[in-house]
Design a protein around this nucleic acid. Structure first.
Length: 565
RNA sequence: UGACCCAUGGUGUAAUUGGCAACACGUCUGUUUUUGGUGCAGAAGAGUCCAGGUUCGAGCCCUGGUGGGUCAACCA
């Protein structure tokens, strides 16, 4: 025990976020017998997104750091919005992220009986009543923060009548919306959450786990605290919008006379150039503004996975952004940095030409070809080498040639010499054009002595270009993604709704890119660096002979976009 | 309008019982380089929303403003 605490102090000397400070203090004071037990409680009504990843890393991370446990618990209290598809996707995403909840997979719906019994107890204490008001009527009587509520005409029903009515609600005697069970707390609390909130509503709906056994379903506030209590959660971490609910969370648990975990709120993640609410993401999916939940432009875990993000990079990102209570918008550049950092160490390098320009090397022996050795990953010697086919006809990137090139343009131009990576030095001798003046082909010469990219006489070239052999290559589809929205904060724009701010150029498809043959048949999700272009991964639509790649993120580029210079 | 919460370089997060603000991303420089990538070295950029107060000393404590967020679903 003492050892553990000392170790903690050692490794955390740097700094603790405010939640860790609270927890370390609790451990020191022996609260909950100095144990830590957290939970990640998603509602299965949509796919997980990068904001959830922050919460997941927090909850599982805290548990791991303090030698505790973290449960996975589905908060499935609303059958009209929840589906097994979402349960499955959430589990898949969590596993992919690399988290483990052992055998502690729970569902709020497993506690429905216990919740019901606690509700009966509350009624018996005179702390809850059945109300016949419609939601509109209830709302009309609720008042405002400065105006007290009008009491419901049913507020003072007898305990016997309440029990009878609630029992019959459960038995299915009443139609949807006709009655609720309400907590009897306050009519004039300045905290609106405390003005006799609903505990149960009637929904004759099929639940994905309990089927038709229930027709009354608990509200979040009533259910969530009990779930935490039943599971003996020590620290119940949630986002800021639940701050006003904490008194209610405490009230329910205290009135039920059960163990009360500590709710702590932190700020949710916002990312620039995207939206982070399940409702908005659902709209994008349903209105087919994107191609499903796992569209690589989506900030969903599944979208980012398909895009080529690694679990490690997402976890590193979560660590980097920190935990606090202040509203934030994280620069998407931070996320991009996290993937580049990870992929730089791991991605196999490969050459691909996305926007091809034919180059004919006129002094290369006609009809001949050869294989040249290339390094798979300069950051990782163990990745080895491979052979790439080369001949007198190749493609280079159109952007790598400029007819009237400025001095700082370190690439190919008439009369200039560059290196073809792992191949030879070539010099541009002639530019071929069609009738309308478009460049169609370059005629170059090569220096046979520069094989492998080294010049025997020690002469230097400024530029090194990637290339692909014109005959021995594969043709692949490459999908290029840009930010989904045109402004940094589409969530809170006053003039336009978020859907009006979608970037029309967020997806562009290159039908025929040329790539060196080694990538043919690679598994879905395999990640590569296309040299000098960026990181790309194999899409699930990919097949041997018909490969499809997604651009994860470009390389940092201090030259910028040459076409704009 | 009432309650609750928040306020530190462009962005995000630190500053351990109050001791002249640190780290990451971004930006810029130089250097290395067969990726205008990576690595390495370095720089600029805030005096901590404002006004008072306590103190030898305040980003940290107190008071009052200002600005922002959340809540007034039978959603979570």
């Amino acid at each position: 025990m003492e050892n553990r605490n000392e170790n903690l102090q050692e490794e955390n000397k740097a700094s603790l976020n405010f939640i860790e400070q609270i927890i370390e203090n609790d451990i020191k004071n022996g609260k909950n017998e100095s144990s830590v037990h957290t939970r990640f409680p998603p509602e299965p009504n949509g796919y997980l997104h990068i904001g959830h990843a922050k919460s997941i890393c927090l909850n599982f991370g805290i548990a791991e750091k303090y030698n505790g446990l973290c449960n996975l618990r589905f908060d499935d209290t609303n059958p009209t919005k929840e589906e097994v598809e979402y349960v499955d996707s959430i589990i898949e995403d969590l596993k992919w992220l690399g988290f483990d909840w052992g055998d502690r997979l729970y569902f709020a719906s497993d506690y429905f009986d216990q919740m019901y019994n606690f509700a009966i107890e509350l009624i018996k204490k005179g702390k809850a009543y059945v109300c016949d008001l419609s939601s509109e009527e209830t709302s009309a009587l609720r008042g405002t923060p400065s105006v007290p509520a009008q009491p419901s005409p049913f507020r003072d029903r007898s305990i016997e009548e309440n029990i009878d009515l609630f029992t019959r609600m459960k038995a299915g005697e009443f139609p949807d919306g006709s009655k609720t069970l309400r907590a009897k707390i306050s009519l004039d609390s300045p905290n609106m959450q405390m003005r006799d909130p609903a505990m149960y509503r009637i929904r004759h709906a099929h639940h994905h786990r309990t089927g038709n056994t229930w027709c009354i379903y608990p509200m979040y506030d009533w259910a969530h605290g009990l779930e935490d209590s039943i599971e003996k959660i020590t620290h119940s971490l949630c986002t800021l919008e639940f701050e006003n609910h904490r008194p209610l969370y405490n009230w329910y648990l205290d009135e039920s006379e059960v163990y009360r975990p500590q709710q702590i709120e932190f700020a949710r993640l916002n990312l620039s150039y995207t939206v982070m609410s399940k409702r908005k993401l659902l709209e994008l999916v349903q209105e087919k503004l994107v191609n499903g939940w796992d569209d690589p432009r989506m900030p969903t875990i599944s979208g980012m996975r398909r895009r080529g993000y690694t679990p490690e990079s997402l976890r590193a990102f979560s660590d980097r952004i920190g935990i606090a209570k202040r509203n934030n918008v994280i620069d998407v550049a931070m996320l991009e940095h996290s993937v580049r950092e990870d992929l730089n160490k791991r991605a196999k390098r490969v050459m691909a030409v996305l926007n091809p320009l034919k180059v004919t090397i006129k002094n290369y022996p006609e009809g001949q070809s050869e294989e040249l050795k290339a390094v798979n990953n300069p950051e990782d010697e163990s990745a080895g080498t491979r052979l790439i086919p080369f001949s007198g006809e190749i493609y280079i990137e159109r952007e790598d040639f400029m007819e009237d090139a400025p001095k700082k343009f370190f690439r190919l131009a008439p009369g200039r010499e560059v290196r073809l990576r792992y191949a030879y030095f070539i010099t541009c001798e002639q530019v071929l054009k069609d009738e309308s003046g478009n460049i169609t082909e370059l005629i170059c010469t090569y220096d046979p002595l520069s094989k492998g990219g080294k010049s025997p006489d020690g002469r230097k070239v400024k530029g090194t270009l990637h290339w692909v052999d014109a005959k021995q290559n594969i043709e692949a589809q490459v999908r290029i993604y840009d930010r989904l929205f045109t402004i940094p904060n589409p969530d809170s724009n006053e003039e336009k709704g978020f859907k009006e701010l979608l970037n029309p150029d967020s997806l562009s498809i290159i039908e025929k890119a040329y790539i060196e043959p080694s990538v043919d048949g690679a598994d879905a999700l395999s990640y590569y660096q296309f040299e000098r272009l960026g990181y790309f991964n194999v899409d699930k639509d990919s097949k041997k002979g018909a490969m499809v790649f997604n651009k994860t993120v470009g390389l940092r580029d201090s030259w910028g976009k040459p076409k704009n210079q």
